[in-house]
């Protein structure tokens, strides 16, 4: 699904509770909670149900069985909530995230800011392959990119979406595709559905 020849790309894992953890926070991007997935998560997280908190972002699905539940509007709300959570979650706790790649990294970088270490974190990619693209020219980011070439939301240049990924930005590198011959832009293809 996430095929790439670049070995430095992050590897994502299936979500399994780390029983060594003291408390467990599961953050799910609502649109990736496809039919049957909720039941799977409930089953997988059953062993830590008593110490599980679940934040569901961007979907109001009636649900039970994933510990204490909070419904949040968007990824931005998750990031805000995490920024305020430094007193609530500590060094013994675990964070699990399911979502698209931009969502995973928005949450992962917010968690890193409040001090979560990599070993406390598990990321599971689900849903769309759409990318956040960072423009090497204007340093703007363009969200929700599903095509091989995209017009930069910052400067309007036509960017080739490369496979190079930045964990810090949670984004892929975009470079101007018609720098040599301005205006010569190849056909755009839908490659990250």
């Amino acid at each position: 699904m996430m095929h790439s020849d670049i070995k430095s790309r992050p590897a994502y894992q299936a979500l399994v509770p780390d029983l060594a953890g003291s408390r467990h926070l599961l953050v799910v991007e609502g649109e990736t909670l496809v039919a049957g997935r909720l039941e799977e998560l409930v089953q997988v997280f059953a062993p830590v149900q008593a110490t599980l908190h679940t934040w569901l972002a961007g979907a109001s699905t009636p649900m039970a069985g994933l510990g204490r539940l909070w419904q949040l509007e968007s990824a931005a709300d998750v990031v805000d909530a995490l920024a305020c959570a430094s007193r609530g979650y500590g060094v013994g706790d675990r964070l699990y995230v399911q979502g698209t790649e931009p969502f995973l990294w928005s949450v992962a970088t917010a968690a890193a800011v409040i001090g979560f270490s990599e070993k406390q974190l598990r990321l599971h990619h689900a849903g769309s392959l759409r990318r956040r693209v960072w423009c090497t020219h204007c340093h703007g980011t363009t969200e929700g990119v599903t095509t091989s070439i995209v017009a930069c939301g910052g400067c309007g240049r036509h960017l080739l979406v490369r496979d190079h990924f930045s964990r810090r930005l949670g984004a892929f590198m975009g470079v101007q595709i018609d720098a040599e011959v301005p205006g010569e832009v190849p056909t755009t293809e839908e490659v990250f559905p």
Binding site: S86, G90, V91, G92, D93, I114, G115, F116, S117
Partner: peptide, 9 residues
Amino acid sequence: LLLRQPANT
């Protein structure tokens, strides 16, 4: 003592 220490302790 080790319970509930902040992240990145």
